[in-house]
Every structure is written in C-alpha cells, then in structure tokens.
Amino acid sequence: MNSSDQRLPLTVITGYLGAGKTTLVNHMLRHAGGRRIMVLVNDFGDIAIDADLIESQDGDTLTLANGCICCSMGGDLFYALSDALDRQPRPDHLLIEASGVADPTRISETARAEPDLRLDGTIAVVDAVGFADRVADSRIGSSVVRQVAAADLIVITKSDLEEITELAKLKTQLAEFAPGARQLDANFGQVPLEVLLGGLPSAEVTARAHACSHHDHPDDHEDLYLRWSISGDFRYDRQTLRSLLENLPAGLLRLKGIVQFNADEGLGLVQVVGRRAEITSLSARFEGVMQTNLVAIGLKGQMEPADLDRLFA
C-alpha cells in the first residue's frame, strides 16, 4: 500500500529528559520488522542504542544489524533532514528524537512543508511520576506543556509506579493540554510498532466490513489492542469523509488506507494518527486497488468495531 506514496514518513519523538524517549526508540529499533528506520538524535545526545543491536559504528553513525541507522543531528535539523532525504538508499522511516526542550512543531511543520516528507506523527513520551513537577517548574514547564500539546500520541511511561488516582489525574491533565491526542500506557515502551510507526497490514479484500480480531497476530499486545478493517465498494463525499475523520472513536490510534470518492473524483489515501487526519488525492494510476480498503488499530474497550462499521460502511 505504501507504493503509492514516495514521501519519507517522519515521526517526531518528544519528551523531557528521563521520560523514556531512548527506551522507546530502542523498542522501535528492536521491533523494526524489516523497516529500515533512520534515527536522528538531537544535540548533546548520547546515541544510547542497546549494544546488542549495533553492528558497526562510523563516526557519528551507528549501523544496526537489521538495517536501521542512527546518527547525531549535530544541533542542525536542516542539514540532518537534507542528508536523510539524500541518503541512498532512502530509509523507510525517519525517526527524530527531539531534545528535551525542543519545540516539536518546528520539526513536524518542516515535515508538513517539505513535499518529499510526510509527517507520520508526533509522539510525546510522558513520565507518569515526574510530569506534574516538571509542569510546575517555571523554567521548563512551558516547554513540557508545548511538547504534549503538539502530540498526536502520548505514551505514558512508569505508570505502574504511580497510584491509580494520581494516574487518572495525570490523564485528565494531559487531555487538557492536548485535547484529542490519544494516550497509551506503556511500561518499557511496549507498544505495537504499527501504533507507533504505522504500516498497518492491508485489509483482506472482502465485500463487507468486519472486525478482524480473529486474525492471527502473534504478539502479546492482543489483550490491549483491537484491529478493524473494511474493504469493498464504499464511496464517500470528500467533505463528509473529512468530518467522519474528525469524529473517530477516542480509542482509535491509527487508521490508514485507500478510499473511493463519489462520482469521478478518484481515490484518496487516508492516514490518521491520533487526532490528526490527512487525505491525499491519488492518481488513477494507483496500482491494483480499485476500491475502499481501510485498516485501523485502537484500544480495546475504547473503540467498538460496530461504531467504525457504522461510520464507514
């Protein structure tokens, strides 16, 4: 399904020092699943990649056995992005670990502006234990809030160390800073890669909508996550689709696929990460796919397949 889109997907990982960004990055690299991920680490960054993943090191660049690479950004986003885009072969996914105080929108807006990049999403990592103190700190509070407010997905770490009531308070506070952003509990960064980086498997081509929880997904996240897909001759009005995407269930983390538009308006590529939705027009030459084909992943209990069926079928 990615063959329609030559843009390099970019994910920004933001969060204050010690929140767990590096743990999350290591988790993503370990479970890259064939994607060649390129990680750019911000200034002063120790490239703290788990030693057993590293195959070789050349100056500031680490090469991993699974084809992923990690580089220091050297304090200059402009050149780091240019170099990533010019790299041969171009990586499958670009991951930027922003500095502990960086404004992530500076990076995400660059990805939105650059025609050869596609902003896949901004992931804020929040430390359940330390977050409140950081927000209250007059020197860094506004930076920390800015990071969360920019997020599409918020990964909450160390949530097992916090009292349930405190955790609930934290989630309410996060929802105030970032209305619509999806929140995930993740100890040790254990979140399925398809949530963090997209790349949902394409739906089976069937004539009717169905929940795909019966599919064989051999990982241990199944008790937390639910997958849904739809495939068939479903057509949408562009405006209606836009408003559909603005009213998705709160537990939906990602939605991706091809949609058919009404009349002769052709096909569109839909990508939703958390609260952010993008519809890109596809040319008619799009290979193979002739009809609507959407897949989603969300939090079990917070996303009902029946609701999605109702919305899209």
Partner: peptide, 16 residues
C-alpha cells in the same frame, strides 16, 4: 507569547 524557547534543557546545560 510566553517566555521563549530553550535550545537545550537546563539540566543538560548543567552537565555540559
């Protein structure tokens, strides 16, 4: 708006 933007976190500045 606001109070500006750090280029590096104060804690990291301390270490450096």
């Amino acid at each position: 708006p606001d109070h500006g933007i750090w280029n590096i976190p104060p804690e990291q500045l301390m270490t450096a």
